[in-house]
Design a protein around this nucleic acid. Sequence first.
DNA 1: AGGTGCGTACCGAACGTTTGTTATGTACTC
DNA 2: GAGTACATAACAAACGTTCGGTACGCACCT
Lengths: 192, 192
Amino acid sequence: MPARGDHDARRADVSAAVWRVLAARGFGGLTLRAVAAEMGVSTGLLTHYFPNKRALVRHAVDVAERHTDARDRHAAAGEGRPALRAALLDVLPLTDEATVMSRVWVSYWDGALADEEFAADQRRRYDRWRARLRSHVDAALPGPGLDPDDLVATCAAFAHGLVVQALFDPAAFPAHRQVALLDRFLAELFPA
Amino acid sequence: MPARGDHDARRADVSAAVWRVLAARGFGGLTLRAVAAEMGVSTGLLTHYFPNKRALVRHAVDVAERHTDARDRHAAAGEGRPALRAALLDVLPLTDEATVMSRVWVSYWDGALADEEFAADQRRRYDRWRARLRSHVDAALPGPGLDPDDLVATCAAFAHGLVVQALFDPAAFPAHRQVALLDRFLAELFPA
DNA sequence: AGGTGCGTACCGAACGTTTGTTATGTACTC
DNA sequence: GAGTACATAACAAACGTTCGGTACGCACCT
């Protein structure tokens, strides 16, 4: 917990609390009072740092994206297929913390689908993510005749679809199986 | 609109209204008043046919599953890979009606993640869906050494991940591209 | 044939709770 | 003393649920 008055750090605290509430109660259960209770503060603090709930949610999701992004850069040591593998591993619910973030995103999809502005944000987020994956796919392109954008969309689809299945059935999709599934998938799509 | 008093048909009407509200406003925006307004009736009708909101939602999603299952084209699509292709096409948002149903499911994921009972329902639904796909995969197995359950999970992941991307960016994922992506995906996974 | 009674179908309002937002108050810092 | 950083209380709106009331259809009785 940062010092009282540290504006940016406080907003980051709020965002982390939003993630926890979102992961535990879903977008429908995301209320200012729940976030405040999660932080052990009053709703007055939230309204002090954010003009309204919409801005609060938006900031929390923005920070979440940068959070995952930072994790991505850390893991991606190589280039091409290993980098692509690392980038996809970053979005799978392989750890407790990654599971929380995965739940944040899946829950947020609901809110984003129902709200035009959030939906536009989410579309741009997907664009950015695919653009990031694209650079890795380009370096790993198995041969001519294959559209790299299609490959990127296919990889993104596989990853997010696996996230959803793993969230609903963690016992059937332990971390090692998720990794194995990803590796087999990549082996098929990018034959060495 | 069926005759007044047709119990089962009336419950099906309510379920269809739930789908429309879910697709338009998301799980968080799913309220009894919104469903009643969508049907042009009062909330009293809803409470007459369902003991509470939870039961209403549960029934609506159950009907939705049977709805998609009935649409299943694999009955007319032969066996093996063509049947698998048809079954996966059935869950993609290729038409307006299919888009509504896709939005229903993605929105419902949020509610299901936040509710243990709904989550268990959803896990069983995934199990049933994968079991259905499994029979097609078995008939299309490209060779030994590949786990059919892994192939099924991979196909399911690809399909649902594509659904999400297509919902957020319909312009970038028109029906023909979704079909092309699926066909290329299947061609890689099940080489003829 | 024509009332009579009763169950089903449904409306519309009310209840208490919870929501986002706004305001007022208070303590601490500079 | 001014301004920032909160807590606390109040607000209307909207929520799920409950409930009294009405309209209709069908069995039954004479």
